[in-house]
Amino acid sequence: MTVSRPLVGWLYISPLMLVLIPFFVLPILVVLVASVFETDGFGGLIPTFTLANYRNVLTSALTFNLYYETVKFTVLTWFFTLILGFFIAYFLVFHVRNPLLAIGLFLICTVPFWTSNIIRMISWIPLLGKEGLINSALLRIGLIHEPLTFLLYSSFAVVVAYVHQLTIFMIVPIFNSMARIDKRVVEAAVDAGASRFDIMRLIVVPLSKSGIALGSIFVASIVMGDFFVTKVMSGGSSASVVGAFYEDISVLQYPSAAASAVVLTVILLAMVSLILRTVDIRKEITQ
């Protein structure tokens, strides 16, 4: 029984590895290899070893600009989704007294997650556009005299679309860890004379750290790996790292695209492992 345990474990895990190796490990290796090859200019790759692609990526001002834009959107989205996610979860867990109602409201928050992201994104167009609902409403009540143009096809629209799509990734894990906080702990803190703010700072935030970490990983990795929202919602005025990668691919510049992808992936993985170092997510989920 004891001897065969690792074997049983490997047996159970082998189907997962049969997917992860050909569809995660090998593709990443392929990209890594492509990043040190040269292009023949027609979509073909010349097997050599060159770091020129990395040199180009890391020294160009364009790259700097791309990363600046991507990091800007990541940080803004992370900030707003965290604030919204935290307070919504806090409201549902600590302010809604009827547990059935809390679960119902929670489900209301999660339903759109199961519907198409692209559709949810374009659904902002009739609202934010020049002739959209918001502009026409503001014009009608006379608050403005000309349509606001920053609403759509702007950084503002990009952040709105991201926050709209991704807040759910904060709400769910934070709700989960908050729901596990023993209410008696909070009552004990009230007894000890803690203020609402003290309770939040000293009890709720530390005990929902794992949820915050998990949500941050989701939000940051999705925004950094995305190009679609930036492309559509900024109307082409903002670029993103992956967007540039996509442009490179469509003009068959595989090696330089691969180099920039490797740089992005390394940054992403470093960020995630940094977050994972602060909390043992595996333990948090499994316990």
Partner: peptide, 8 residues
């Protein structure tokens, strides 16, 4: 899970 989808 976190790798950029398009790159993958």
């Amino acid at each position: 899970l976190v790798a950029p989808g398009l790159v993958l």
